[in-house]
Simulated scan of single mutants.
Amino acid sequence: MIGHNSAISAGHLRATILGWRAAHPDVEVDGVEADRGALLAGLDTGEIDIAILVGEANHADFRHASFWNERVMIALPDSHVLAGRETVHWTDLRGERFLLPGADPGPEIRDILLGRLMMAGEPPDIRMHQASREAILSVLGGGLGVSIICEGGTGARYPDVVIGPSSASRDRRSSAIPAIGERTTAIPHCGGSSPSCATAMHCRSTFRERARQ
């Protein structure tokens, strides 16, 4: 079971999962999208073999490694004055209303916004909604505000919405870094022979190869 807390309609994670599945057609692969806390709990109970998390995996009880950076993207109504820009800078977003999901990776994106726009001299207007990112993006074209998404969410299309790169696209410090986790106490008992252990080990190797590309 592969757990993740971000969209996989595009980007490294989607390509990695599909590539690994094509290379190992005899192995059944299942996945679950959930918040960070639920994924860590799943690792603890053994329900999840490997978790790919947006942001740093700063959890002492889990082994983890950083793989790649995902670009930070801006979602705007197609009628917005910035919709035609090749790149949107943080200073361009001062005074905007940001709509974010309360679930992952919304809190991580909120922290990026707070850090960037506070540096620009103005506290951002951030609205956290108990709705999915898909629901927010589906109504964004009505001029309700703007949103920030990770590159993994750019494969889907939403009515009257355009998605483009932000000036943070090449900024590693504010990029989303997926991380892989395993409970350290579980490794000695795994032995490398169980299906779940084999899945985790093969996935880890594949993710590392993808990160080098």
Rank of each mutant, 00 (worst) to 15 (best):
D44V: 01
H24C: 05
I52M: 11
E28H: 15
P25G: 01
A38T: 09
D49I: 04
E28T: 12
G19M: 00
D49W: 08
E33H: 15
A41F: 04
T45F: 02
P25I: 04
A34L: 14
L40S: 04
R36H: 12
G46K: 05
T45L: 06
L18P: 00
V29T: 09
D35R: 02
H24V: 05
H24N: 14
D26C: 08
D26G: 14
D26P: 09
D26V: 04
G37A: 15
A51T: 13
L39K: 09
I17L: 09
A23N: 07
A38R: 05
G46T: 06
A22G: 06
D44N: 15
R21I: 09
W20L: 01
G46D: 03
A38S: 13
L39E: 01
R21H: 15
V27A: 11
I50C: 11
R36E: 09
L39I: 05
D44F: 06
W20I: 00
G19C: 02
I50D: 07
D44R: 10
G46H: 05
D26S: 13
A34P: 03
A23I: 07
I52F: 15
I50M: 11
D26N: 12
E47P: 02
V29R: 01
E33S: 14
D26H: 13
A51V: 14
V32H: 14
G42T: 02
V32G: 13
I17A: 00
G37H: 10
A38F: 04
L18I: 03
D30A: 13
A23G: 05
L39N: 06
G46R: 06
V32E: 15
T45K: 11
D49H: 07
D49L: 08
H24Y: 10
T16K: 00
V29L: 14
D35E: 07
D26R: 10
I48L: 15
D35S: 03
A41N: 02
E28N: 10
R21C: 11
D44E: 12
D35M: 01
R21G: 03
L53A: 05
T16G: 01
D44T: 11
D30M: 14
G31Y: 15
V27H: 08
D35A: 03
P25Y: 08
I48K: 01
A38L: 13
A38E: 11
I48T: 06
G37Q: 12
A51P: 08
A23H: 07
R36K: 12
L53R: 14
A38Y: 03
H24T: 13
R21S: 14
L43H: 10
L43K: 09
D44I: 01
A41D: 05
L18S: 07
A23L: 11
I52C: 13
T45V: 06
P25A: 03
T45E: 08
I52P: 02
A22Y: 02
E47N: 15
A34Y: 02
A51R: 08
D44K: 14
V29F: 06
I50G: 08
W20E: 00
R36G: 04
T16D: 01
G46E: 04
G19H: 01
V29C: 06
